[in-house]
């Protein structure tokens, strides 16, 4: 399986995104990070670390589980339900700028679910989307604001983001023929 990003490139991409976030938002006031479970959560934590190193400010960071908001739930006549995990957003999102973080942007359906879930927590001033990889093939009108890498893919391929915290190593790989 060909590797498209190694640990070094992923780390530089995140640092670049941190700078772009600061540039676009003119500082970190009223900003908060929310990672989408599973791999969005460690990515959000890393971004928080980068932002602190650059700017010295702590950014509140939360974790969002979108399972209960999925549009494909209960679509299979008989099937196991996906595992629901805890959402932890230990701060008010009202009037904050929320940076929503995920690993791969593909159909956009996860992000649609995440937007619905976030709105149930309050009324943020704005929501911006951060992804490590944008692989295209959107099925909904959704666009990322900050992208680690744009990766053209075919529908047959699958993109894997692996993270130290979960998978023991940092890398992005692409599997299947183009």
């Amino acid at each position: 399986m060909p590797q498209v990003m190694d640990a070094d490139r992923m780390s530089r991409a995140l640092t670049r995104i941190a700078h772009e976030i600061l540039e676009r938002n003119r500082g970190l006031d009223e900003i908060a990070l929310v990672g989408i479970r599973t791999r969005g959560v460690p990515l959000a934590r890393r971004l928080a670390r980068s932002l602190r190193e650059i700017n010295g400010d702590d950014v509140p960071t939360g974790a969002l589980d979108i399972t209960l908001y999925r549009d494909d739930l209960m679509r299979n006549p008989v099937g196991p339900q996906p595992v629901v995990r805890r959402t932890e957003i230990p701060f008010s999102i009202d009037d904050r700028k929320i940076l929503l973080v995920d690993d791969v942007l593909y159909t956009g359906r996860t992000i649609r679910a995440a937007l619905d879930a976030l709105i149930d927590f309050g009324r943020p001033r704005a929501i911006q989307l951060v992804v490590m990889v944008d692989r295209g093939h959107r099925e909904l009108p959704i666009k990322a604001d900050f992208v680690g890498k744009n990766l053209p893919t075919s529908l047959k391929q699958s993109v894997q983001v692996r993270l130290q915290e979960i998978d023991g190593a940092d890398e992005v790989t692409i599997e299947g023929e183009a």
Binding site: R37, D72, G79, P82, V83, T107
Partner: peptide
């Protein structure tokens, strides 16, 4: 059987093995 199907056409990545 559904487990296999879900793995094959998994639109949204689930992350963990679904249990039921």
């Amino acid at each position: 059987a559904t487990r296999v199907n879900e793995a094959a056409n998994g639109h949204i990545e689930i992350g963990t093995t679904p249990r039921a």
